[in-house]
Design a protein around this nucleic acid. Sequence first.
DNA 1: ATACAAAGTTGTAATGATTACAATATAATA
DNA 2: TATTATATTGTAATCATTACAACTTTGTAT
Lengths: 140, 140
Amino acid sequence: MKFTPDDFAKELKSKNIRLSHQRLKVLEYLSEHKCHPTVDQIYTNLLKEIPTLSKTTVYSTLGALADAGMVKAINIEDNEIRYDITVEDHGHFKCESCGAIYDFPADMAHLESEVLSGFKIRDKNVYFKGTCPMCLANKN
Amino acid sequence: MKFTPDDFAKELKSKNIRLSHQRLKVLEYLSEHKCHPTVDQIYTNLLKEIPTLSKTTVYSTLGALADAGMVKAINIEDNEIRYDITVEDHGHFKCESCGAIYDFPADMAHLESEVLSGFKIRDKNVYFKGTCPMCLANKN
DNA sequence: ATACAAAGTTGTAATGATTACAATATAATA
DNA sequence: TATTATATTGTAATCATTACAACTTTGTAT
Ligand SMILES: [Mn+2]
Ligand SMILES: [Mn+2]
Ligand SMILES: [Zn+2]
Ligand SMILES: [Zn+2]
């Protein structure tokens, strides 16, 4: 919605990242699936469109895009990295029942502590865990 | 400092967790090493005192203690779980240069969002990444 | 348009943390 | 002390991620 393939191409160029079909498709997938997919989900789904796609490419692409600040890696569980094309500060809620990850606004500025006065902060993360309304309803 | 082995024994009993030498040692190690050690660090160091220790035991022990709320698993990087005996809410700062993890006070209550009104929140996490003062100084 | 060099992609194999499981040992209880 | 449930151990399996070398594509200069 917010981005067209052309927008992605321009942004990649502006960041001196070479344009490739695979990179554009990964960006397109993330912009159309804001559910914070895993590498495997991205790979499996893109495979339908790009039968020659390699999982290594998905890893390296996401790594490059993350380095460039175009996507953000989400570490909530230790056994999976998820990716988010929304790089603006916000919190994540992971439902322990259905596994869904929800976004919520989080005021990161409020978290600043005088204890960190001498630190250079590059990245801020907030995540909660619990049960989502849908799963709470299903239990009754 | 805060806990003696006896305190741990009492707390385990109160939670109906069986008392074992290994569990007490893991708790003792965490209370004496608040640097958020990895499973492997805990294992390697306890091996000196308990030559028969198995890494599987360290995993299962930490899992049981985490389920009981006596320790907290810290997921910052995707390739390592760290453990913290401080279970009260606080934030973590990971230095990307030296790898050290620092504690800082974080007002989690402020993060509550009306978006989460129907959610049951069980666990809140805040972590930052960047460079610590020591590493910043060393760069000059 | 063509050619070249740098960078990206692919497939496969290696790595490394975590888990599964069956045999053995220990802890709690009577 | 005997019994039973649970914990520990060692080994093998799992599975996400990374390393690497051959091949392909992209960006750029001719
Ligand atoms: Mn998000
Ligand atoms: Mn801590
Ligand atoms: Zn749910
Ligand atoms: Zn540092």
